[in-house]
């Protein structure tokens, strides 16, 4: 449906914007390495079903490989910056101080409690949706502490937030057309979108209406 395809395109766009940001600035200014590492973990645990070869569609499989591949590629690019621009890299690391154990631990516990089946694949899948819902926090934390962000970085976060927000009408659509109701995706999706809501508001006020981007 239209919401699902727009969501996936917005997700693709966010990654293109992120890669463009790193490529253009040749440094990692404003990008949280911790959030990016969490995304690698999110995609690797969610798409374990690639190993079972029970694929749903070519689209699905290609997208899964794309998201795993690009998330690892982002880490590689960031590590290159460490060599090329060690001062900027150190500066980023000094500001990237969110304790991710507070995200990893609860996600693991929630996955144990809320899952569709107590199997490795299902537990990893559930862990990945819980973790994805909070994975942006180190990035938002970094932004709110520095108070300022580059335009490309804000576009990246916006596109990334929009992706999960668009999944919500997609779930409503699928509920009415397919009688499908996936409670875990829906709940974590709502949580994820809620975490972005403050950011969306500031983005709307500052970026759309002109002017710089500053977080309180």
């Amino acid at each position: 449906n239209i919401f699902r395809i727009s969501a996936d395109l917005s997700h693709l766009a966010s990654i293109v914007i992120l890669l463009e940001t790193i490529r253009k600035t040749r440094q990692v200014d404003g990008i949280s390495l911790k959030t990016q590492l969490l995304y690698v973990l999110v995609f690797c645990t969610r798409y374990l079903d690639l190993l079972t070869f029970r694929w749903t569609s070519l689209y699905n499989t290609l997208m899964k490989f794309f998201f795993i591949g690009t998330s690892i590629y982002v880490i590689k690019l960031m590590q290159e910056c460490k060599i090329k621009n060690p001062v900027a890299y150190k500066d980023m690391m000094a500001r990237d101080t969110f304790q991710i154990k507070y995200l990893l631990g609860p996600s693991a516990i929630l996955a144990m409690v809320f899952n569709y089946k107590f199997t490795i694949l299902e537990l990893c899948w559930s862990f990945s949706v819980w973790l994805e819902s909070v994975a942006i926090l180190p990035q938002l934390f970094m932004l709110s502490r520095s108070g300022k962000a580059g335009t490309l970085t804000t576009h990246y976060i916006f596109a990334l937030g929009l992706y999960r927000a668009l999944y919500i009408p997609n779930w409503i659509w699928r509920y009415y057309t397919e009688n499908r109701f996936e409670k875990l995706s829906i709940f974590t999706g709502l949580l994820q979108t809620a975490l972005y809501s403050d950011f969306f508001y500031i983005y709307y006020k500052k970026v759309i209406k002109g002017g710089g981007f500053e977080l309180p």
């Binding site: 996936d8 749903t56 699905n60 999944y167 997609n170 109701f181």
Partner: peptide, 10 residues
């Protein structure tokens, strides 16, 4: 019947 156990989303 509500179906949930197919992870066909990204």
């Amino acid at each position: 019947e509500v179906n949930a156990l197919t992870h066909d989303e990204l």
